[in-house]
Amino acid sequence: MKPPIFEYFRPKSIEEAVSVRADHDYSAILAGGQSLIPTMNFRIANPTAIIDISRIDSLAEYRIDDSQIVIGAMVRQRDIELSDSVYKVHPLIRETLEHVAHVPIRCRGTVAGSLAHADAAAELPALLLVSNGCVVAHSASGARIIDANELFQFHMTTSLADNEIITEVRIPVMHDDAGWAFLEFTRRHGDYAVAGVAVILRFSEDGICEESSIASCGIGSRAVRLPEAEAVLLGKKLDSNIINEASQAGKEYVSAADDTHATTEFRQHVLSTILSRAINIAKSRARYGSE
């Protein structure tokens, strides 16, 4: 179908954008539009005002400082995927982005936009969770930081207020010693995940796992961390029994009901399989992982 009629705004500054946002009860932010426009074509979303933030120059840049990668709300997924400087400090980002839809979608879609859309099966919310990232949200009353674990509430629902705009995504750089992996299972390449996992592990010199971060998408109403599985790995040398135990512990987080793609039982099986593979890959990439 065709999108419904809306009022179109194209602000030049964040201040102008938040003021338009404050004036409208049902506005939507248009960045890349790769999630918003399909929902409008389907008439699932029917905003009366569209705020196109593509002409706010300050949002189109990303930078890396000592501790974090700061990604403006208009930075396209493809730019981050191809960035060697981002890859150098956080290789998991490229590996995750390669699973996000297809190249033509990533050329337009933004990192912040995917997080704001918060599809339960989307990959980037799991990336933000596993990396302990956050977003910066602006409203007419100022800016605030929302941590990943507070942002994602439910399928396509975030803790963002109606008058707020995500202006920045902040992802802490990965430790040099860390190992990483992103794996997912989909029916077709580029589809939303039946189940996906993101893993970051770090080991002490004698091979003891001292940092364990695991997140998953596609298995419930939102992307989640898997603390029970993380806890199994912490403080241990990772042999096949421990990795198996962790991947079994992940199963309890599968809450999605049976759908056309998978039954709950099948999703649990898929999750534990890819989780165990991802832990093995992360371990092999980590310094001291196989001491």
Binding site: L30, Q34, I37, P38
Partner: peptide, 9 residues
């Protein structure tokens, strides 16, 4: 860059 013209106003 390649883009979906049905997902662009």
């Amino acid at each position: 860059r390649a883009a979906r013209s049905c997902l662009t106003f």
